[in-house]
Design a protein around this nucleic acid. Structure first.
Lengths: 341, 341
DNA sequence: GCCACCGCTGACTACGTAGTCAGACGCGAG
DNA sequence: CTCGCGTCTGACTACGTAGTCAGCGGTGGC
């Protein structure tokens, strides 16, 4: 007569088997003090026997917490965002939080707001905006749910908003300084989409480095992170003999730039130096192997999540220092310019 | 006297404001029939005013369902797996399911079992094994939670297991046939890691195509999906003048192979044809642009998830037909072999 | 010897939702 | 007019957990 369709065992079932009260089972499962070793053992044995597992729903209902953080991602397969997402999951799980993702399509303006709403509906204690891009509307977040934005975002405001960003300005500066340091008169830039905060920051770093060196600022090209857009920008650059050094805002676009330069017969690095960013696994195996800037997502993500969880759990928490999270990987796509033209 | 720390409004609060019973609010929120239009409007207005949102925890507790599917992923940034993951999320959300991810590190043998356990703990109605790789132990899944494996997996068994795979055998066969069709005497193969089901399937397709054409089967090389491992394999291939055609199991490794061949002075495609797999965005911008096999994850993922949800919800469901989900993208890295040596 | 206190345990209850069941009302058929 | 039915609404309850508080027995101080 198995009319009960295999309802998973509850703490009451364990309690019955162990001959204790339901509350005692709860105490044991939560590792609370004031339980004798003998009873603790008996409860654990009973739990093991029944395959007992705490019911998350009941727990969340009672505690008012889900122990879950939600992430709004753009759903791209780009190396940078993907790495960051993986790192977020790793960290979240390490500190005892489950991990939900909602992807929004870039270009869908109401996407972010809808994604946030969807996360709130499914129940999360905090939200991470993984790749901050400008959204058309003002983004108003339900008070009570802290939001961590991995980069500042105009239009995103509220008492529960935390901003914590990897140092993209530094990255842009470092790339540009590397090329200037090799002796190039100036450095061209193929930027990412202007809507992305990360793009704009890299541009700022580039500008800052040029200004500091007193180098003229060439017109900026803009891509959309894809090799195709890099290729388009590369054709423009290849047509200009003045161009001797290019900072491309990610490695994928750099692949396109490399291709365009090769097709135009502009040798890299002999005639044109190219530096990318991200250090994708393929970077070392391109022709030529690509000099690039690598970001340490692990550190910045860990720091951001720590801030978020502090806010969620209401602890004060010492705000960690800003670590340097970016460094140059020298390969063979950059070198000093040829003597004179 | 705001001693209540902003407890989110519940259906009772909405009911009070609308002057109806809590049960009626529940009916309205679930779109049940037998509610007069007037009351429905009043309830909706009250809900809007209070910013009411159904409490997922209470819902899940009552219904015994979480409306959430969990995915065990390998946490790699590889294009294929990443695309598949994004597609999974998209589909899951489209059919009303929330989406949890747990990454396991490859090589950690107990990783998959632990990841599954972690998903069960956080509460999911179904589990997807996104990139099936061999696990050391037998994988025993808690009965009652259906599991969808995106590929068959030895050691994975149980009444609740569903297998649904993209056609990797076909992909391997198609790649090999393309090269044979161009006139190559035989085709070498750089495979992915043997632990991955996808690798083994592609190998099977390769072998089948060779056998069908009566072509000799050269020794197989094995990489780990990375450009670095492709480079290592490429050096071996470059040293053998017999090699005129290579099927590389993914585009990333193909980048490494291309690099190794270029360094050895073996021209692609003049001396050696190379075909990859995945059609990563960069494939069209390599030197030379890479011929490759593209998989349609959208179709296979949608089908697999549909099967899983049928099982979860206990519906019978017509099993969809196996769609062809793979096709050849011809670019410039393959061509007929030179006449004689 | 009495009381206070500590260590341990359990009864009771709240959390927010939806299922069950019963009751109220209006309307048409007999 | 009455009966029956269909439409609409609400009271009550279960779901599984953990917080609160009370109670029990033993021990040490006075």
């Amino acid at each position: 007569m198995s009319e009960t369709r295999r309802r998973p065992p509850g703490s009451t079932d364990v309690a019955r088997l162990a001959g204790v009260s339901q509350k005692t089972v709860s105490r044991v499962m939560n590792g609370e003090p004031y339980v004798s070793d003998e009873i603790r053992e008996r409860v654990l044995a009973a739990a093991r026997e029944l395959g007992y597992r705490r019911n998350t729903a009941a727990r969340a209902l009672n505690l008012g917490r889900f122990h879950r953080i939600g992430v709004v991602s753009l759903g791209s397969t780009l190396y940078g965002p993907a790495s960051q997402l993986i790192e977020l999951e790793r960290r979240a799980r390490a500190i005892g939080y489950a991990f939900s993702v909602v992807n929004t399509l870039e270009g869908d303006d109401s996407g972010v707001a809808r994604a946030v709403e969807s996360l709130l509906e499914q129940g999360v204690d905090g939200i991470v905006l993984s790749e901050p891009i400008d959204v058309g509307e003002q983004l108003r977040i339900e008070p009570g749910v802290p939001v961590l934005s991995l980069g500042p975002l105009p239009g995103l405001a509220g008492p529960d908003v935390i901003i914590n960003s990897p140092s993209n300005v530094d990255a842009g500066r470092e790339a540009t300084e590397h090329l200037l340091g090799l002796g190039h008169a100036t450095v061209w830039h193929v930027a990412g989409p202007g809507r992305w905060w990360a793009s704009r920051e890299r541009v700022r770093g580039w500008r800052a480095a040029l200004a500091a060196a007193g180098a003229p600022e060439p017109p900026m090209l803009e891509g959309d992170w894809t090799p195709a857009s890099g290729y388009a920008a590369g054709r423009v650059l290849a047509a200009d003999p003045e161009v001797t050094a290019v900072f491309v805002a990610n490695d994928d676009m750099a692949i396109g730039v490399l291709r365009a330069l090769a097709e135009a017969g502009r040798a890299v690095p002999e005639q044109v130096s190219v530096i990318g960013m991200d250090d994708i696994p393929a970077a070392a195996y391109l022709s030529p192997p690509l000099t690039t800037i690598r970001q340490d997502f692990a550190a910045s993500v860990a720091q951001g999540l720590a801030l978020l969880v502090e806010r969620i759990e209401g602890r004060p928490g010492a705000s960690a220092p800003d670590l340097p999270t970016t460094h140059l990987v020298k390969r063979q796509s950059t070198r000093p310019p040829k003597e004179k033209t």
